[in-house]
Simulated assay, not measured.
Amino acid sequence: MSTSTYTVVGMTCGHCVNSVTEEVTQVPGVTDVAVDLATGGLTVTSESDVDDAAVRAAVEEAGYEVAAPASQSSTGQGSGCGCGCK
């Protein structure tokens, strides 16, 4: 079993969480997805290593962005809700 964690930028409501969960669940090999709205945390569980690019693409498909790791510079994008709520 493998677990990977990410930080998703731009989620502001339960619909956002549902959108990310739905998209990431469709990534081949993923067995469980947990999203924490308060922290932006995304935990992906799989039976073997999951393609990091596929997880990132799924988050982007949902309308959000995976934050750059601390060692990389951030562009400051992603301050609005991707689902269109107010």
Rank of each mutant, 00 (worst) to 15 (best):
M1G: 15
S2R: 14
S2A: 12
T3S: 06
T3G: 04
S4Q: 13
S4L: 05
T5Y: 01
Y6L: 03
Y6S: 04
V8W: 03
V8D: 01
V9R: 11
V9A: 13
G10Q: 10
G10H: 11
M11D: 06
T12L: 09
C13N: 10
C13S: 12
G14E: 07
G14M: 07
C16Q: 09
V17L: 04
V17Q: 00
V17W: 00
N18V: 10
S19R: 15
S19W: 09
V20F: 07
T21A: 08
T21I: 02
E22D: 09
E23C: 07
V24D: 01
T25S: 13
Q26H: 08
Q26V: 05
Q26K: 15
V27R: 02
G29M: 00
V30L: 04
T31E: 03
T31D: 03
D32W: 00
D32A: 06
V33P: 00
A34D: 03
V35R: 00
V35D: 01
D36Q: 04
L37D: 02
L37E: 03
L37V: 06
A38W: 02
A38L: 10
G41I: 05
L42Y: 01
T43I: 03
V44M: 00
T45R: 07
T45D: 11
S48M: 13
S48P: 07
S48N: 12
D49H: 00
D49S: 14
V50M: 02
D51T: 05
D52C: 06
A53D: 13
A54L: 06
V55P: 00
R56N: 08
A57F: 02
A58E: 01
E60T: 13
A62C: 10
G63D: 05
G63F: 07
G63K: 08
E65R: 10
E65I: 12
E65A: 11
V66R: 00
V66F: 01
V66G: 00
V66E: 00
V66C: 02
A68N: 09
A68G: 06
A68V: 09
A68R: 11
P69T: 14
P69S: 08
P69I: 14
S71Y: 12
Q72H: 11
T75M: 12
G76H: 10
G76M: 08
Q77L: 14
S79W: 09
S79C: 09
S79F: 10
G80Q: 15
G80K: 14
G82A: 10
G82I: 06
G82E: 07
C83T: 09
K86R: 11
K86P: 11
